[in-house]
Simulated scan of single mutants.
Amino acid sequence: MSDPFEIQAQGESEFVVRLRGDGGERESWFRLSPGLREELGLEVDDEELVRRTVRFLLGHQEVADFPDIVEIEDVVAGYPDYLDAVRG
Rank of each mutant, 00 (worst) to 15 (best):
L58K: 10
D22P: 11
V76C: 14
D84C: 02
V63P: 15
V44P: 10
I7R: 09
G59K: 13
G21Q: 01
G21D: 03
V86L: 12
L49S: 01
L36E: 15
E25A: 03
V70Y: 02
E14W: 13
G35L: 00
H60A: 04
R52T: 03
A85P: 13
S13V: 08
P67I: 03
G78F: 04
E73I: 00
G35A: 01
V16T: 15
E6A: 11
L58M: 07
G59I: 13
D46H: 09
Y82K: 06
R55E: 07
I72G: 00
A85E: 15
G78I: 02
V63L: 14
T53Q: 10
G59D: 08
R26D: 05
G41F: 09
V76E: 13
Y79V: 04
P80Q: 11
R52E: 14
L49F: 15
R51F: 05
E25P: 05
D45C: 00
V50I: 07
I7F: 02
R18S: 14
P34A: 08
D65Y: 10
V63D: 06
L83C: 00
V76H: 14
V16C: 02
P34L: 05
Q10H: 09
E14R: 15
V76G: 09
I7L: 01
R37W: 03
E25G: 03
R20P: 06
R52W: 09
D81S: 02
